[in-house]
Design a protein around this nucleic acid. Structure first.
Lengths: 221, 221
DNA sequence: ACGAAAATAAGTAATTATACTTATTTTTTA
DNA sequence: TAAAAAATAAGTATAATTACTTATTTTCGT
C-alpha cells in the first residue's frame, strides 16, 4: 500500500480544515492540495495527480456533480468521493451517474469516512448505509451503466484474512476471550491463541484496541 | 430496581413481535399486554397498570399522539415512549407537547432502545440523537411547557459510579489495559486494578464484554 | 474541623495472555 | 494427486490480569 494522495474540494474552509485534521493522524493518506470550487479544482489537476478527490456536492462555480463528470472524462484513474448534506434520491443517483466512486453524508462518522476512503482507494466503491436502499432500488430498475464494472458498497480490503481468521476476529471484537472463543468453535484454546497471534501479526497491530480500529477501518468484519 | 411492566401499542403484529423478542432475554422488563390501536390500549388500562407504554405514532383508531395525551391526562404515573418512522419536526414536537417521555425512530438499534427504556423507567427522558437538535431549537424558542420539570435526553442511572470510576470505565471501554490507563492518569497500575475490580463488582459483571454492554445500556459513559 | 467516602497502592495466589516456535493434520486448488 | 495453504495444537518463558484483602492518604460535605 502506497500513500493515497488526496485533493479536497469544498467551498467552506472550516469543512476542509476539519477533514484535514481528521486525516492528519491517519497513516497511508495525505492531503496534497485543496480547492474551493470545481473550476479551481480542475486547474489544480493540470499540475497535480491525486489518487482520490473528496468533493462537496454544493459549490459555487461548477458544482460537485459536474466536477465528477469532468474528472471522469479527462482523468479516468482518479477516484472520487462525493460529500453531501442531503440524502435525497436525486443527488445520490446523479452522483452515481456522474461516475462517483462513493457518496457520504457529511454527518458520517470518522470511522465511516476512513472506511470509505480505504474502500475507494483499493478499487472499491462505498455508499452510506442510509442511501444503499436508494441505490438498490435504482439498480433493479436497470440503471447500471456506471456501476457494471465493479461491485457496489463493498471494500476490497488490502489484508486478506482466512475464513477462520475472520471468524475469530469477529469473536475477538465481541470482546470474548480465548477460552470462550475456543469453546464456541470447539477447538483448543491454544489454537485460538495461534489464530489470534497470526491475526495481530497480519494486521500489524499490537493490542485489541488497534485490532478493533483497523478491523473497522478496513471493513474486515 | 423492580421489573418494568410494559404495554406495547402498535398496529403491526410483526413489529410487536419483534419488540417482544427483543425484550425477552432482557432482565428487568416484561411485556404484560399489547394492543393494536389507541382505543384498545385505553381499555386495557382500565384493568392493567403498566410502568411504561411503548406506542407507535401511526395507528388507526386514535393515533399515538392522541393516546399519549389521553394517558398523561388520566394516568400521570405511566411513562410513554413514542416510536416513529419519521424524524420530521412536526411529530417530535407534537410528541413532546403531548407529554411523551421519549421519542425513538424505528430504525434505532437494540442498544438505543434498551437505553431509552431504562432512561425513562428511572424517571428520565430519552430522545434519539437525530432529533435532539430539533428539540433544542424548539427549546430556545420558548416552548418548554411539558419539559420544565425534568432534564431532557439524560438517564438517571441506577448504578452510581464515582468520578474516578467513570473515568476508568471510559478508558476501559476504549480497550486500554491497566498499564495504559495507569500511565494516562498518573497513578499506579495496582490502583487502576482496584478501580476496575470495584467497577466490575458494582455493575455485577464478570468480563469486559458484559461491562461494555451494561455501560452502554445504562448510559454510564 | 470532623467523619465519611473516595482514591491510592501494596501483597498474594491463581488464572490467562503474549510471543513465539515447531509440528501434525486437513483442506484447497492448480 | 501432489504441493501449497490453512487449521490444529502442544511447548516454553515471560508478562498481565483476576480476585481479593488490607491499609494509608485525600477530598468532601456539613
Amino acid at each position: 500500500m502506497s500513500i493515497v494522495k488526496i485533493i479536497l474540494v469544498d467551498d467552506h474552509v472550516l469543512v476542509r480544515d476539519g477533514i484535514k485534521a481528521l486525516l492528519e493522524d491517519e497513516e497511508g493518506v495525505e492531503v496534497i492540495e485543496e480547492a474551493s470550487d470545481g473550476i479551481k479544482a480542475l486547474s489544480i489537476l493540470k499540475e497535480s495527480t491525486p489518487d482520490l478527490m473528496i468533493i462537496d456536492i454544493r459549490m459555487p462555480n461548477m458544482n460537485g456533480i459536474e466536477l465528477v463528470k469532468a474528472i471522469k472524462k479527462e482523468y479516468k484513474e482518479i477516484n472520487t468521493l462525493v460529500l453531501s448534506m442531503h440524502d435525497s434520491e436525486e443527488y445520490v443517483v446523479k452522483s452515481i451517474e456522474a461516475g462517483a466512486d462513493g457518496y457520504l453524508l457529511k454527518g458520517a462518522s470518522k470511522d465511516e469516512f476512513l472506511k470509505a476512503i480505504h474502500a475507494i482507494a483499493s478499487g472499491g466503491k462505498y455508499f452510506t448505509g442510509d442511501v444503499s436502499s436508494i441505490i438498490m432500488s435504482n439498480f433493479v430498475n436497470g440503471n447500471t451503466n456506471s456501476m457494471s464494472t465493479k461491485k457496489t458498497a463493498t471494500v476490497e480490503n488490502p489484508f486478506k484474512l482466512t475464513k477462520r481468521q475472520k471468524q475469530i476476529l469477529g469473536l475477538v471484537l465481541q470482546l470474548k476471550n480465548n477460552k470462550e472463543i475456543a469453546e464456541e468453535l470447539n477447538i483448543s484454546r491454544r489454537t485460538t491463541e495461534v489464530h489470534r497471534f497470526n491475526l495481530m501479526k497480519k494486521l500489524e497491530v499490537k493490542n485489541i484496541k488497534e485490532l478493533s480500529d483497523k478491523a473497522h477501518e478496513y471493513n474486515l468484519i
